[in-house]
Amino acid sequence: MRLATLDNDTPDGALVLVSADGARMVEVGAGAPNLLALMADWTAGQPALGDAAARLDAGEGTATGTLRAPMPRSWQWLDGSAFDQHGKLMQIAFGLDPIESDRPLMYQGMSDRFYGPNDDIPFPSEDDGIDFEGEFGVIVDAVPMGTSAADAMKHIRLIVQINDWSLRTIAPIEMKTGFGWVQAKPACSIAPIAVTPDELGEDWREGRVCLDLDVEWNGARFGAANGREMAFGFHELVAHAARTRDLVAGTIIGSGTVSSPDYAKVGSSCISERRAIEMIEKGLPETQFMRFGDRVRMAARRTDGTHPFGTIEQTVVQR
């Protein structure tokens, strides 16, 4: 199934199912009025989803309207850093010592708002080092404390594509305090479509989204790294997060920036990585961070050229 949220001037929007070609949508209705409500009781919402799917298959539906983030707000957003190559390059970019750990890296970020796929993104200053970060994420139902990685797979209900906005000038300052990020990590953006794992078929393997994530900056190709390179699968990230706490239904867990050891060929999913590569190759970074008016476009791509999550396409503006 392909789920989305229609803007209806309410905080959580209206849950809709979207046709495979993206041309039609049907509202799910009272049985699951929004995605947050559906996640709160996934099983209870299945009849409403099934009815909406039947109507969509029968040719019903209206033209797709203005879509927000599939879940415009949630109870919890946990972002990992599951791509080893990204971590190595960021250590170079920020002049940090390697993190010696066999555990997934993860922090808790801002979850009370997620930008929609075509929202303008406001920032107070270009001097803060505005950067995009393309990644994938999952939305889980209620996960009990102590859930194993094997059991965590059945709690992954939906998969999403995320742009985790970052302010790179502020990040190393906050990292050195030993506390979590606040100023360096504003609200994220999410592509319009959340898909069930079966919708991806063979592109969902071992808890990984095995798709190229195409990234363009101001219309120029920037990267197309593949999500299969995760050192930890999403099931392992879920288990890590649930080791000492229950995860509330609707928790979103991110992969961290999609990255590849073959970066010379496939490029990167964030500017800071490119700057680190320039430091390795040339001694100094040359690429500047984003300016007001800059545009970024992200879309995971299947081998047939389709985009299962739709597209994030946004412009950076001054607050």
Rank of each mutant, 00 (worst) to 15 (best):
T62G: 14
E286S: 14
A44K: 11
L167M: 14
Y115P: 00
A63R: 13
A276L: 03
R157P: 13
E206C: 01
F292Y: 14
G95E: 11
M279Q: 14
L96F: 14
T306I: 07
V28R: 05
G59P: 07
L200Y: 12
P98Q: 10
H307P: 07
V238Y: 06
E126N: 13
F232Q: 04
E126H: 12
E278I: 05
L158T: 11
S74G: 15
R221G: 10
C188S: 13
R208M: 03
D164M: 04
G45S: 12
R24G: 04
E60F: 10
V317N: 12
E313Y: 05
R24C: 06
P72Y: 02
A242H: 03
D97E: 15
R208G: 08
G50R: 15
I121R: 11
F132T: 01
M153I: 11
N34P: 02
F83A: 01
K154D: 15
V195D: 11
A300D: 08
M153G: 00
L200P: 12
G45Q: 01
G129R: 07
D119V: 03
P47E: 11
A69R: 02
R113K: 13
G137D: 03
G137F: 05
L3K: 02
R68C: 03
I312F: 05
N34V: 02
I271E: 01
R243D: 08
E60P: 08
G87C: 11
F179T: 12
P308I: 12
R103A: 15
G22C: 08
D198Q: 13
W42D: 07
P192W: 09
L211Q: 09
T287I: 08
P261A: 00
V266C: 06
G201F: 08
E216L: 11
G178I: 10
D164W: 04
P11V: 05
